[in-house]
Design a protein around this nucleic acid. Sequence first.
DNA 1: TGAATAGTGTCTGTAAGACATTATAGC
DNA 2: GCTATAATGTCTTACAGACACTATTCA
Lengths: 256, 256
Amino acid sequence: MNPNLAEENYSAGKYRTPDGAPADIVIFTITSTERGTVKKSLPHRELQVLLIQRKGWPFAGQWALPGGFCKETETVYDCAKRELREETGVGEVHIEYFNVYSTPGRDPRGWIISHAFFALVHEQYLAGRQAADDAADVKLFSVEEALGMELAFDHKQILQDALDQVRRQMLTTIIAKEFLPEEFTISELYQVIRTLVPEFEEKNFIRKITSTQSRKGIIEEARDSRGERKVSNRYSQRAAQLYRFTGDVPQLSLYS
Amino acid sequence: MNPNLAEENYSAGKYRTPDGAPADIVIFTITSTERGTVKKSLPHRELQVLLIQRKGWPFAGQWALPGGFCKETETVYDCAKRELREETGVGEVHIEYFNVYSTPGRDPRGWIISHAFFALVHEQYLAGRQAADDAADVKLFSVEEALGMELAFDHKQILQDALDQVRRQMLTTIIAKEFLPEEFTISELYQVIRTLVPEFEEKNFIRKITSTQSRKGIIEEARDSRGERKVSNRYSQRAAQLYRFTGDVPQLSLYS
DNA sequence: TGAATAGTGTCTGTAAGACATTATAGC
DNA sequence: GCTATAATGTCTTACAGACACTATTCA
């Protein structure tokens, strides 16, 4: 369409306009549960997603992604952040736009174009929220379980797409840090990566990340105020070196 | 916002709805111009973008990205493909969604949320179109030039974002093939990459791409029906081996 | 024969990948 | 001393990076 025509069309009010532009948010967290052994050991980690049970029409009773309609005074990104804060009580978390959903008929309420975000949240933020808010209509599900359910609207597709996106980014960006404390051990990092990408298996993971030129700039040893290397024995008898992300990310390339 | 409230809000018609959801398309092409030497030589390549001169309000006379309003019977993706076909006459090209633009006030016509796509088109497709359509209101600009102009709406930002995106993808995906013939020489591939990412400089490019285990699966030698290796002397006295993309793309990873 | 591109030889240092081995400390 | 995790040693093969060199064809 020629923009000039578009304007005439718009000015004349000939065409239907959308009935709403919501933001829907796929809120992921990784829960850690201690394995019930006596001795210290690495926890079991699971990727979970926050869903909300709908009360009214449409899809009453079914579980859906949190979200809500944008106002004309905000960007869809602002809207998503607002919804996230209202839903989880947290403000400063990783939130990222990833796709738009506009298939005609996807929402029985009308012509509604949804903007999908994913957010990565530490489990402790959600744990607090869930305890405070005793409503049974907000709940964490394992992603596997959620994908097996009938979700409202096209939310199963949105969830699947978000998962694919986060999986891809787990290996090509440093989003792993969103699921980790500021300082973490190599094992924790490895566990987080494998929680998202089970097929990622690196026998010599510790070596690659700590002693190959091209990669060792990604993380650095954590040191205390006296410059001593910091260690942790959270998960092991033998204390493990703590690391932190430097913020540097090497440019990946197919061709070099 | 609780989806339930959202519904009530919607049902009650209390809130304003968007005035339109257009798709805007950043159509890139790479032009080749022969360097005016007598002998065969590699062409000069330049990244260009297709712009349209607006006729009416708003931004009359200014250059803008092609695009148009979505209908309620199509997805924004369908809309973008339709616009692209109307603008360039070509159907089967790489088109990809990359961001949404919703800053309040970005369009003086009202609350208009724009969905931005980029398309990668062979120059010959656009050349034909431009010859047929002698209108002076559709024109290819070098990206550099376009970014120096005052574009309508927030289209300069959209163009910049599209460029960043394509640059990133040039090194991490095989979109280079969208700018190349089915069968191409290593030099052509290298030129296309460098047209988008001038700082990409690999002295031993031919070796890396053809003889390192981890990368040589990306392209393969082109062979004719008798199994003979195909060569080209388009750009050189000495004939060069032709290659084709296999479709295989190794999974890039920060951690391995 | 010189210009322009295509492609190979060779060398050095470093990384990858596989496995075995040692280290630590709580039980 | 057994166990779970952390970390290092060692060896082979492969790749990266540099640079000189050869190959092809035509004007």
